[in-house]
Amino acid sequence: MSSQALDLHDAHGHDGHSSHAHQFDDPVQQRDSATLGMWAFLATEVLFFGALFVMYSVFRYRYPVMWDMGSHMLDWKLGCLNTFILLFSSLTMALAVQSAQLGKTKRLNVCLILTIVLAFGFLVVKTFEYHHKYEESVIPGRYFQIPPHEIEIYEKKYGEVFHPPSKMEASAGSETVYDPMGPYGPGPVMHDGHPEMTTAKAPLEPVFTDDYRKLQLFFALYFAMTGLHGIHVIIGIFMIGTLVYLNQKGWFTKEYNTPVEMTGLYWHFVDIVWVFLYPLLYLMDRAHS
């Protein structure tokens, strides 16, 4: 998106005095175009996150208990802290936009830097959360583990046995030799023409899943969604950082402040995504605990 801002900076690239890029008739058209472009881009973003939200909903519907357990394994207090940090950063961003519109460049500077600080604060908290999960090895993939105390909590709460990982991992994809005689002896009628088919890559056990893997799915989606959101926060920091730099070079005036506004829209979007992520991932199933 920073390149979109760049397109608008054409204004300053050319003969230095014209107030809009060469492809536009006037600054108003330029601003309108930028705004529509940003909204269209946000529509794309909604669909981009949308696919992940769909996956989240499907699996939550299918594995409600594991989603409950996953929710409990996240620290709602840190999530709450992050929500406040981001909401507050939205406020500072809104103030930045307002400052730019009023031409108060000093205040703009302060607001932008505050927003960056808050964004970093968000990332720091997120890093702590990720690090904690890393230490407990609650990272989807080969070394995924569930800390024993979490299993205890779960078993106490539901009075159920937590299903440990099956042997699937070991046999899936490994070279297994298919024996046409099978474990049951020869079948009565055999087709002749399959000599090449005696080796295949496939598990011999039936295909099914267990609690361990369902929980892994929760964390896979947790990391995918918060990770994608985190990337957006980082991009946002770069964008706001660019604004700070440009502001110090005196780019923004009462008349020309579209990049600030656009970045503002983007930042609010990032905030809104989190406002959905937080309850879905951290709070959703706490109600009946």
Binding site: G159, E205, P206, D210
Partner: peptide
Amino acid sequence: LLPKKQVAAGFKPIMPTFQGQLSE
């Protein structure tokens, strides 16, 4: 395979899974 998925009314979900013990 997934005894906890749909538990019959009036019963406790105590059945162990038979994952990995039966072929298709």
